[in-house]
Structures are given as structure tokens and as C-alpha cells.
Amino acid sequence: MKILVTAKRVTDPDMKIKIKEDGSGIDLSSMSFKVNPFDEIAIEEALRIRKDKGGEVVVVGIGSDKAQTEIRYGLSMGADRGIHVQVDGYMDSEVIAQILKSIVEKEQPDLVFLGKQAVDDDNNQVAQLLAEYLGWGQACFASKIEVNESKAIVEREVDGGIEIMEIDLPGIVSADLRLNEPRYPALPAIMKAKKKELQTLKPGDLGVDITPKVIVKRMAEPAQRKGGRMVADVPELVRLLKEEAKVI
């Protein structure tokens, strides 16, 4: 079984971001980066399926040269080889999905595994767009997956509970938080990953137009809450909720 997974380079989700004063975007100068946590879960699941079924796991990353760091991370987790599509600057979800479509057509995987959303732009679109472009089925927000020869049974985290669905392969699955606990690559694996194949392509090689349809014109800080007031005990809290906040 051949599985394609994604590794998006995102800002460390535990760091506080700063918006540039001119509103043109996020100030990335002091940020550190890592693999999108949802992609990490997708990579882990692909590796577990490979262990069970055999085959190959290919990691795809799209972005500047620096995006290779996150592809290498996927390789150090245990993926077999990487593909880097070099794009500098802004891309919308549609451009990313179009690039992935062309890679899928070249690679012909049985399964494409992506994180359900990237924790930077929080768009939650690429897996679904890709499924429609390919004319494949989608199983998004997966918390459990069982792969057979030509089908997979997927449990999805939905509002109201867990939905169970069947999807024909090849198909698209997006990973939710509770699918697994991703491994940490050990040092020998990190060293070994440096020697694994990593192919670099340009959108032009793939015949993909990278003009975005959805453009971020400017950014601003959301209104900040003025919190921080402390109360001494429950009676004071109840009094304030009643007399000041008037919510009871």
C-alpha cells in the first residue's frame, strides 16, 4: 500500500504570535517552526498502516526551501521518501490542493492522509478540496481507521458523537487529534533521514497555476479581553456575578 502524507511547516502553536505593525501579516522573525501537529498525527498513522500492510509512505511538503525541514522530520519519523514543491510566498488552500492533486496523479497512492487543519491559518479545507478535485471519497476528522484491501472503515469525530463510514480506496482521510500519539524520532532515525531521497519540484513542473483566489488583504489584532481580576472567595464571586456582571 502506498500512502501519501503531508507535512506543513507552521509556527510553533505554543508561541504567541505578533502581527506586523503595518498589518501585512504575522511577524515571523522570532518564531520557531514545526510540523503541523495534525499532519504529524497523519504521518504516524500512515507509518502504522505501513507496518501492518507493507508498502511505502511518501511525505509531501509545499513551501520555501525551509519547508524541507518538516519533510525531513517526517522522514525521521520513518517515512520512506519526500517530495518538496518549492513555492515562496502566500498560497491559498486551493493552490495547495491543486499542487497535491498533480502529485497524487504522478504518484498514484492508495491513500492520502492529511491533518484536518493547519494550526496557523486554521482553514480546514485542503483534504476536502483535494478529494473533490480527484473525484475521490473523503473521510475527515478521523479518530480511528481500519484499512482493508480496497476499502477503509473510518470513525470520525463529529458534533454529536462518532460517525462511522466506509470509504473506497484510493481515498482521502484527514486526521483528528485522537487518532494516535505521534512518535518522537530517535537520533539514529534523524541521522538516517538525512540520507533519504527528497525530490524538489516547482509548480511549473507540475503545470499548476499558483494564483490564489482567496487573498488575505490585511491582518489585525483581535480585541483583547481585559481580564485578571481576582476574587477572594465564593461569596464574593456570587455577589459580583449577581450585582456587577448581572448574569444570575
Partner: peptide, 20 residues
């Protein structure tokens, strides 16, 4: 004209143009 949404876990507010 522009749509507004939040990104980065609600820490950035983005003003968005859709060209389609």
C-alpha cells in the same frame, strides 16, 4: 467587500478578498 475571519487560534484577525 471583504470577509473577516480569525486565524492562529483566534490571535489574528484576517480581512479577506475572494476573487472568484
Amino acid at each position: 467587500d471583504l470577509f473577516v475571519r480569525e486565524m492562529w487560534a483566534g490571535n489574528a484577525r484576517a480581512f479577506i478578498e475572494v476573487t472568484t
